[in-house]
């Protein structure tokens, strides 16, 4: 009886409306870790295919897609049972992928073959392959669905793909080893991280030209170790969060001024980022320290780190 009472009290005074769950791919464990976002408790770990990396929910959140890179497939999991219910023909070595806002098309980069594969999620077939630069990596899709971009790590370009024609319309040369890309919420700007250059570029979507650039500098950290990877735009269209890899920091960036507001110390080799649905928390996967960090977005403070398994890589939140 008292348990119910406490639960009711907790529910009443809890500031967070959503009890979110984090789904984290563990690259070396071939598994998926499920973590409670609010309490930071590791709820369970379920087996996946080999070298799982990219992860995302279907538009209706009933399915979870996971790129099992060494199995050359994207696994389809039932989001409730976390059982594998199917596969997508991703092509070889799938890594990062994104789902178009129409909920039907999935774009995945095939690093070894220099192509981006377009998959129809309804028919579970590969629609087409788009030839891009050497070692395609990051994929981003504008919220209005008009542009799909892909970064190629050795060609050092952003390829602008028109999703109506599935063809490249333009290319923007960026700093060496571009990794992740993210559109601003108003779809007017694209942000791209360059791992080797230690920089963040802002590209104007209309002209495809670079309009701003920022080089990260962290006191006491060798500039060679500052390797920006994952980037996430806050819906307020002002803040941008950038994971700095082996610099073990997340940079909080004013995206209009292209200035760093703060560097937050997280786990080692911070890689990918995700918000809680209510935007109060930011989660980071830290590949080398085998944990995730939780950041309070309002205070910009790191509140927790949770050990989840070997090489946490991708993260999806529900």
């Amino acid at each position: 009886m008292s348990k119910v009472y406490i639960a009711l009290l907790l529910a009443a005074f809890s500031t967070s409306i959503f009890a979110d769950k984090l789904y984290i791919t563990l690259e070396k464990d071939n598994a998926l870790a499920v973590v409670d976002g609010e309490t930071g408790k590791l709820l369970k770990t379920v087996p996946l295919g080999q070298r799982p990396r990219g992860i995302a929910f279907s538009k209706d959140q009933s399915m979870l897609y996971v790129a099992a890179s060494d199995d050359d497939t994207i696994q389809i999991l039932d989001a409730e049972t976390l059982k594998v219910v199917g596969e997508l023909p991703s092509g070889e070595d799938p890594e990062l992928f994104k789902i178009h806002p129409n909920g039907r098309l999935l774009y995945v980069s095939n690093e070894d073959d220099n192509i981006v594969t377009v998959i129809d999620l309804q028919t579970k077939t590969a629609l087409t392959e788009i030839a891009v630069g050497v070692e395609p990596e990051g994929i981003a899709i504008s919220r209005d669905g008009k542009w799909v971009v892909n970064t190629s790590e050795t060609t050092n370009m952003v390829h602008w793909i028109d999703p109506l024609e599935q063809s490249i319309k333009d290319n923007t040369l960026v700093d060496p080893r571009p990794r992740a890309a993210e559109f601003s919420v108003d779809n007017k700007q694209l942000f791209v991280t360059s791992e080797i250059a230690g920089s963040l570029s802002r590209i104007d979507v209309a002209t495809k030209q670079i309009t701003g650039k920022l080089h990260f500098k962290v006191a006491g950290v060798d500039k060679e170790l500052i390797q920006p990877v994952g980037v996430l735009a806050h819906p307020n269209n002002k803040l941008l969060f950038v994971a700095l890899g082996p610099a073990n920091r997340v940079a909080v960036v004013d995206s209009q001024a292209m200035k760093v507001l703060e560097y937050l110390l997280v786990g080692q080799r911070v890689w990918n980022l995700a918000f809680s649905p209510d935007l109060t928390r930011l989660y980071t996967t830290n590949g080398v320290s085998n944990d995730i960090s939780i950041i309070d977005v309002d205070d910009l403070k790191v509140t927790k780190s949770i050990r989840v398994g070997h090489y946490p890589w991708g993260i999806a939140v529900k």
Partner: peptide
């Protein structure tokens, strides 16, 4: 080969 993949765009 890698240069030519990039060269297609430049």
């Amino acid at each position: 080969k890698d240069n030519n993949t990039t060269g297609r765009f430049t």
